[in-house]
Design a protein around this nucleic acid. Structure first.
Length: 268
DNA sequence: ATGCCGTATGATATACGA
């Protein structure tokens, strides 16, 4: 069956509940992975999701910061839900589950990394690099034959030159520095992952999923970055049907500063 | 270097985002 999977850094699910409601009305992915929900599980607003037919959910939230969640329609029950923590820090950044066909879905919110791209001077940047190293090592250890993994989330790295509005200008800006791109590349190599969006959009074409709030007109300035990603393991490479960015969602009012990234997969 | 804007919090300022 064909399934659409979306990943969206919603930047507070409660503050952007209207945007959630509109997105689910207009585009209705079968599976929705959220990041930066910024709410504890007992306060999560489940009703709007249920009203739109998302009867399955998995939550991993905390107060004020971070937080990830997975929602799915009736035909996509979520099994074996797991919460993961990394770098010995108790933060809600990684939630996984298993889809009906046995595919393992991983939803990540990678640390942003702070302002200064210096691991010695900036503990947040150190944490970001260590997070990617630790997760990459974990995925490498899990390597088996016919692994069917889907990895989505706000990975907070724009790896390609065309994943940012100005490559040269962003080389020393956190999210596009060479050391972050190297760490992401090692993570990417841990399973010979396939980048769903770049499977359909050539590498010489600019693609963004995040546009700063600090621009008076985000669409006109178009100073974006592609921070949100969907990767699949080689066993699922042939199942990719389409992928792209739901850019119009960035224009909702009020909106998250991220737009959803969506992929369609033909799963057995 | 800073500002730009937005969200959260025992909050009327501060941390964080990237």
């Amino acid at each position: 069956m064909k399934i659409s999977i979306a990943t969206w850094n919603v930047n507070s699910v409660r503050a952007h509940l209207d945007a959630v409601d509109r997105y689910l009305s207009e585009q209705a992915p079968d599976v929705l992975c959220l990041q930066e929900t910024k709410v504890m599980d007992d306060l999560f607003p489940l009703e709007p999701f249920r009203d739109h037919g998302y009867v399955h959910h998995a939550l991993f939230g905390q107060k004020a910061y971070h937080g990830v969640a997975i929602f799915a329609r009736a035909r996509v029950p979520l099994a074996k839900v797991k919460r993961h923590t990394w770098c010995g820090v108790d933060q809600a950044r990684h939630l996984s589950c298993v889809l009906p066909g046995g595919e393992e879905l991983h939803n990540f919110y990678v640390p942003a990394g702070g302002d200064k791209p210096d691991a010695e001077a900036n503990p947040k940047f150190r944490h970001k690099l260590d997070f990617m190293t630790e997760v990459a090592a974990w995925f490498k250890r899990r390597k088996r034959r016919n692994n069917r993994f889907i990895l989505v989330g706000d990975l907070n790295v724009a790896p390609l030159e065309t994943d940012v509005w100005n490559h040269k200008q962003l080389l020393r800006v956190v999210s596009h520095t060479p050391i972050e791109v190297e760490h992401m590349a090692r993570w990417y190599a841990s399973h010979d992952w396939r980048d769903a969006v770049r499977h359909f959009i050539p590498a010489d074409e600019k693609v963004y999923s995040w546009w700063s709030y600090r621009s008076p007109d985000w669409r006109k300035a178009d100073k974006g970055r592609r921070l949100d990603h969907i990767w699949v393991t080689p066993a699922l490479g042939d199942s990719l049907v389409s992928a792209g960015v739901a850019k119009d969602v960035r224009g909702y009012k009020p909106a998250s500063d991220h737009a959803p990234v969506v992929a369609e997969l033909n799963l057995s």
